[in-house]
Design a protein around this nucleic acid. Structure first.
Lengths: 246, 246
DNA sequence: CGGCGGACTCAGAGGAAGCTCAGAGCGTTC
DNA sequence: GAACGCTCTGAGCTTCCTCTGAGTCCGCCG
């Protein structure tokens, strides 16, 4: 079995080949960031900058999923979506859209099983949504485990957005939730504050690493209060989530 | 058993193949939205833009149901209907029609067991009507369970449009009913306001998420009044319906 | 042992998200 | 045409979240 830069086994389809995703965005920087993050997660990634080349790439790659900017230089999301479905009817689509975009049209677009994320987004958000889409499509073997993340006695239900430790419900704010999700998806591994900022906060967030410390502190208060700690500081390197035993 | 992107088991015919539906509408955007939504619900979907190609597709697909726009560029829905019945006599038809259309003609046609929806419609509406048609026709195995949705002590009879909690009847307006139906079809899962707008409100509704909050508030007043709450707000994410226990 | 930089925590400003009330518009009914 | 029910808009209010700044603590190094 192949493994990825993240250390997790590569996502594969039922026939053993890696899951394929097409990233379509006319901002090359953003496309680059997305491509990097998804490749890191074990996807086979291709990128395109406009609708026409996206369709060409789709015909060649036959992607399992597409990350698609709604505003493209040459066409709109509806047209691309229609043509994509002609090429591959069961493709999953994750739309990227500005928060203030003409939402009435967007509204209809996502009506199927597809999903969307508003800019500016965090990479964790994109990755999580994409996993959700694929899981619901029953596409990837590894994803069929279900929407639960488990580290020791800590359990996260991503669909219900519920977190429990030792069976006890823990209430989290949106940012706390995303931070913990990132930690739980990378257990027993030191994550630097820069890495955390890149993944959990929006890509246009200009803030400082101090915010990470602050939110780690929040999480500790809620997660580790009165229990054996699961979040550990590695001075000069970052943070580490691991089960109490082992 | 295969599952759909909605997470529900796929609709299948008595012989195990998925239920087949043909979508006929000359607005490609609308056809795309319908196609996506129905595919998400587990249907095998084909689309056509006019009467001639609809008949061609029908001969090939032999659909169990047809979603049929009354106003087509080359002919009208009734002519198509007649020819459809020649191709497949037991096909179920759901008409799409403008509100001010000649409703008496529709009424006559639908007397035979078919049904219709006026534009603009919500996707929940279309999906529910189609399920109703098929159930009455005794076509789908999974649909024979009956028209009841149950979450905890909350029970919805979709056919009778009756809702009870702990045996007590709860009166709901049409929009409240559809909102609750959507929630009950996705229990223990956080639904974003955008998702809710997409499914419950008409596809051309330009309004804001505020309406969802308002109707959630109505529902809570009727459903949760003086009882343990079943509708939960997940700040920054959406709403969640779950039974009181567990 | 003293100083320094990294890490932690608290308090609070500012803003975002959500709730509810009141009422206008509209279609239906009698 | 008056009365009703339903839907949606607007505004005020509350609650909660996020981030900044400042002070403190702690480990590490000279």
């Amino acid at each position: 079995m192949t493994t990825t830069r993240s250390g997790r086994p590569a996502l594969t389809r039922p026939d053993g080949t890696p899951l394929r995703v097409l990233v379509v965005d006319d901002d090359p920087d953003l496309a680059e960031v997305l491509t990097g993050a998804l490749r890191y997660e074990g996807w086979e990634v291709r990128a395109a900058g406009d609708g026409a080349s996206a369709l060409a790439a789709a015909r060649e790659l036959l992607p399992d999923a597409v990350v698609l900017d709604v505003l493209l230089p040459d066409t709109d999301g509806f047209a691309v979506l229609r043509r994509l479905h002609e090429v591959k009817p069961d493709v999953c689509v994750l739309f990227l859209t500005a928060r203030d975009a003409v939402e009435d049209r967007i509204a209809g677009i996502t009506a199927g099983g597809d999903d969307y994320v508003t800019k500016p987004f965090s990479l964790e958000e994109v990755v999580a949504r994409l996993r959700g889409l694929l899981r619901r499509a029953g596409m990837a073997r590894q994803l069929e485990e279900g929407p639960r993340l488990v580290v020791g006695d800590l359990v996260m239900d991503e669909e219900a957005r519920e977190v429990t430790r030792a069976g006890e419900l823990i209430e989290l704010s949106p940012t706390e939730f995303e931070l913990l999700r990132f930690l739980m998806r990378n257990p027993r591994r030191v994550l630097s504050k820069a890495q955390i900022l890149d993944r959990v906060w929006s890509y246009d967030f200009g803030g400082q690493a101090h915010v990470v410390e602050l939110y780690i502190s929040y999480l500790r208060k809620k997660l580790d209060a009165g229990r054996a700690p699961m979040i550990h500081t590695v001075r000069g390197a970052g943070y580490l989530l691991k089960p109490v035993l082992v």
